[in-house]
């Protein structure tokens, strides 16, 4: 299963880097969001750390919807989905492969969003940055686990990106709240009470959605038109 997943992830990253339009679109959308929010500031004014962290996670959210609709759209061009389903590896390896490719792309995008937030929204990074990286990693795992499961809904032409975001965004709220709270701490340098609990909630989210995806993905992804 792992080798099939790695094969799929490698193929998807090659496709993305080869053409790149999928990731570039997602990156631009996220950067535009950050830029547009910087317009809410007076010259010389700084955004509050909490608002900046919220903008960062919103950019990440839109970005990942585009990433997963692109990743699954690759399989619709010439009916490749049928070929993937016919492969002898368990169908969950498709979920895992897409999730691996997705987390790579999401992390690459976030690597650009962080400096954008710092520059456009006037933030400073405090000594708490390792916490920020920690919640980033944990939240990203949950985001791609859910994104790869629900991205498969867009199989065929029946569902569009807008639908994916309608279903996905509310589900991801626990991760966003945790990400925003810890992000606020990173930008402001003051750690509020209950920081460990956020890590606990985010880890619980990861565990639940990875398990749910492994159990449910075969029902979502098949060769039917």
């Amino acid at each position: 299963m792992l080798s099939a997943a790695l094969t799929i992830a490698r193929k998807d990253l090659t496709l993305t880097l080869g053409r790149g339009s999928g990731l570039v679109q997602a990156l631009l959308l996220g950067l535009l969001l950050v830029f547009v929010f910087s317009l809410s500031l007076q010259p010389g004014q700084r955004m509050t750390p909490q608002a900046a962290a919220a903008v960062f996670w919103m950019a990440s959210a839109f970005c990942q919807v585009l990433i997963f609709s692109t990743l699954y759209a690759h399989e619709e061009v010439n009916g490749q989905r049928q070929g993937l389903v016919l492969a002898p590896a368990p169908v969950q390896s498709i979920w895992l492969g897409k999730a691996l490719a997705g987390i790579g792309m999401l992390a690459a995008a976030q690597a650009l969003f962080i400096p954008a937030v710092i520059v456009f929204l006037g933030q400073n990074v405090s000594a708490l940055w390792p916490l920020g990286l920690g919640i980033l990693a944990i939240a990203d795992i949950g985001i791609v686990a859910a994104g790869s499961l629900l991205g498969a809904l867009s199989q065929g032409q029946s569902a569009k990106e807008s639908l994916l975001s309608i279903v996905l965004f509310p589900l991801l709220i626990p991760l966003f709240l945790g990400g925003i709270r810890i992000g606020t701490a990173v930008f402001s340098g003051a750690l509020a009470e209950g920081a460990q609990s956020w890590f606990g909630i985010a880890l619980a989210f990861d565990a639940i959605f990875v398990a749910a995806a492994l159990a449910l993905f075969p029902a979502v992804y098949n060769a039917e038109e």
Binding site: K11, L15, G18, R19, V77, N78, G79, Q80, Q82
Partner: peptide, 16 residues
């Protein structure tokens, strides 16, 4: 047995 299926669609990734 391994199944090889060739359908109306080519399963080809144009960008590879």
């Amino acid at each position: 047995p391994r199944i090889g299926y060739l359908g109306h669609q080519t399963f080809i990734y144009p960008e590879l």
